[in-house]
Simulated scan of single mutants.
Amino acid sequence: MADTLNLTLDTGEVVIKLRPDLAPGHVERIAELANAGFYDGVVFHRVIDGFMAQGGDPTGTGGGGSDKPDLKAEFNKEPHKRGVCSMARTSAPNSANSQFFICLANANFLDGQYTVWGEVTSGMDAVDKLPKGEPPRNPGKILTARAS
């Protein structure tokens, strides 16, 4: 299984340590989609200053996902702190698919309700530079994403 997810954003390089010990199914999905080129060109459609940056929807609207089935929740005890990567979902616990978010600040109110699958080990400055908005006027983009 892959150890890292390497993102090239239009704002810089980001390296995410994958955590299969916390969420093996989600890590497998993220790596599979990344290595298939699914995330290449996808925007961060929701970036809230002091909270999080959300992407992973190929439609750029927040309403889309991959053609793969939704994932069973793998909620864990890992805290949602700055740099943590977690899966976005609807109000249904088992609805995560391809969308994810990176915490820009501590968000402990999310703990135990969303699946943490990784943590940024370098490049938070690039994440911090993403244009803010819901959606941003000129959203930041993932140029390439690869798991290795």
Score class of each variant (00 low, 15 high):
Gly56Trp: 00
Asn97Leu: 01
Thr4Phe: 14
Ser98Asn: 06
Asp21Trp: 10
Ile30Gly: 01
Thr61Glu: 07
Asn35Arg: 12
Gly133Gln: 12
Ala145Gly: 07
Lys77Glu: 11
His45Phe: 14
Met87Tyr: 01
Leu104Trp: 05
Leu71Ser: 02
Glu28Tyr: 08
Gly12Thr: 13
Thr4Glu: 14
Ile30Lys: 01
Val14Gln: 08
Asp111Trp: 02
Ile30Ala: 10
Pro69Trp: 02
Ala2Lys: 07
Pro69Gly: 09
Cys85Gln: 07
Met87Ala: 00
Phe100Pro: 01
Ile102Val: 15
Gly140Tyr: 10
Ile102Arg: 00
Asp111Ile: 03
Leu9Cys: 10
Ala92Phe: 05
Lys81Ser: 07
Gly133Leu: 10
Asn108Leu: 13
Phe38Tyr: 14
Pro24Arg: 10
Asp3Pro: 06
Leu7Gly: 06
His45Lys: 11
Val43Ile: 15
Glu13Cys: 03
Pro79Ala: 04
Pro131Gln: 13
Arg29Cys: 09
Gly62Lys: 00
Val42Ser: 05
Ser148Asn: 14
Gly12Ile: 12
Thr90Cys: 00
Asp128Ile: 09
Asn106Cys: 04
Pro136Val: 13
Asn97Met: 02
Gly63Ile: 03
Gly60Gln: 11
Phe100Thr: 01
Glu78Met: 14
Ala105Tyr: 14
Pro139Ser: 09
Asn106Val: 08
Ser122Leu: 08
Glu134Tyr: 14
Asn35Thr: 09
Met52Phe: 15
Met1Leu: 10
Asp40Trp: 11
Thr61Trp: 05
Leu18Arg: 02
Lys68Gln: 13
Glu28Leu: 05
Arg46Cys: 00
Lys17Gln: 15
Leu22Lys: 07
Ala23Asp: 02
Ala147Glu: 13
His80Trp: 01
Asp128Gln: 06
Pro58His: 10
Phe44Ser: 02
Gly123Glu: 12
Asn6Gln: 10
Leu110Gln: 02
Asn106Trp: 07
Lys129Ala: 15
Thr59Asp: 14
Asp40Val: 10
Ala23Met: 05
Phe51Pro: 06
Gly63Tyr: 08
His26Ile: 13
Val116Ala: 02
Ala107Thr: 14
Arg89Pro: 01
Gly37His: 09
Thr144Cys: 08
Gln99Cys: 04
Gly140Ala: 11
Pro58Cys: 06
Pro131Ala: 15
Ala53Thr: 00
Thr144Met: 09
